[in-house]
């Protein structure tokens, strides 16, 4: 059993500007979107914000617009709404495939695109009750001084586990941010850094308002391994998008989640373009994944298993997409 949630004040601003204003007025505040992860953490005593700023009243971020050229998905759009959007799924199959694997059906009715992209990093030494963490001297991510996963190191190794990020990365997504200095757009990959304690590059007064996607006619998919077939976060998750066929690849992007402190857009895949999808190519992808995935002991499953699982998923997805055994955008 977890302890009761602490007292806080709930604000429900109606516009992006009002959210930013509230954020700048309340230093010890947190943004809450669907709350499916944040509320669980607050119940465990992880963080004690005095103000929660809810995004549920902000109409602007709750819409999706799909055009022949691409799409803009508001950060407040729920995962269930992403799944219900057939046009979005047809253009960006990996996105729908990833959305389908997030948590359980009732969570998907609350959880949002922005919440999943800004999901807190996770670790077996962090996602525990207050007494559990206290008895262990807390950890580097919250209230403690040592990362129990890598006690000799000086950084937190908590792992990013969002499912949407890799799917959006392989589709070349950009994110739109709003802050007191105005709005800006940047590649999704730039939203993250490899630090489990501070994996988001958002400024304190910035919020994610939307995701922009360009339609590129790529075949794409997403797959993950997890302990329980529903509900669980990925032990390793992989998205692949490609153009071409088994004879030769014209485009190939691979992205990982559940292995590092931020989602990873695999480097080096350009060198595989023009080559046939055969055992040699799949082995090359396997090697790239194994080199760039850096799982450590943040889950009960071993780090080596997660590295091998990520590589295996990347091989399988690439093979099935190249041979046409997956949905085509």
């Amino acid at each position: 059993m977890t302890r009761p949630i602490h007292d806080f004040r709930l604000l429900r601003p109606q516009s992006v500007d009002a959210v930013i204003e509230a954020r700048s007025m309340h230093e010890n505040s947190r943004i809450v979107a669907g709350g499916t992860d944040l509320i669980v953490n607050l119940r465990r005593g992880i963080g004690r914000p005095s103000v929660l700023i809810s995004l549920d009243g902000v109409e602007e971020i709750g819409q999706t617009f799909v055009s022949p050229d691409g799409a803009r998905i508001g950060s407040g759009v729920t995962i269930a709404a992403v799944l219900a959007d057939r046009e979005l799924a047809a253009k960006f199959p990996a996105l729908a495939a990833a959305a389908m694997t997030i948590a359980g059906p009732s969570h998907r009715n609350l959880a949002t695109v922005g919440g999943n992209l800004c999901l807190d990093t996770r670790c077996i030494y962090y996602n525990q009750s207050e007494w559990w963490r206290a008895s262990n001297g807390y950890c580097l991510k919250h209230r403690g001084e040592v990362c129990h996963v890598a006690p000799q190191g000086d950084r937190c190794h908590a792992v990013f586990s969002g499912d949407l990020a890799p799917a959006l990365l392989v589709h070349g997504a950009e994110v739109e941010l709003a802050g007191s200095g105005g709005r800006r757009r940047m590649p999704l990959a730039d939203l993250y850094r490899e630090d489990g304690r501070a994996h988001l590059t958002l400024a304190d007064d910035e919020i994610l308002v939307g995701v922009h996607l360009k339609h590129e006619s790529l075949r794409s998919g997403y797959a993950k391994v997890r302990t329980r077939k529903a509900m669980d976060f990925p032990l390793a998750g992989v998205a692949v998008a490609l153009d071409g066929n088994v004879g030769a690849l014209r485009a190939l992007r691979v992205a990982l989640t559940g292995t590092n402190s931020c989602p990873v857009l695999l480097q080096g895949t350009d060198e595989l373009l023009g080559k046939p999808v055969d055992e040699a190519l799949l082995k090359s992808i396997d090697k790239l994944v194994q080199r760039q995935a850096q799982p450590v002991r943040t889950t009960l499953a071993s780090a080596n298993y997660r590295r091998l699982a990520a590589a295996g998923l990347a091989r399988r997805l690439t093979d099935s997409l190249a041979t046409g055994n997956a949905s085509v955008s």
Partner: peptide, 15 residues
């Protein structure tokens, strides 16, 4: 809530 299932143990009543 409004006809769709939600987990009430992680939903704030005020929302």
């Amino acid at each position: 809530v409004d006809g769709v299932a939600v987990p009430s143990c992680i939903t704030l009543a005020a929302r």
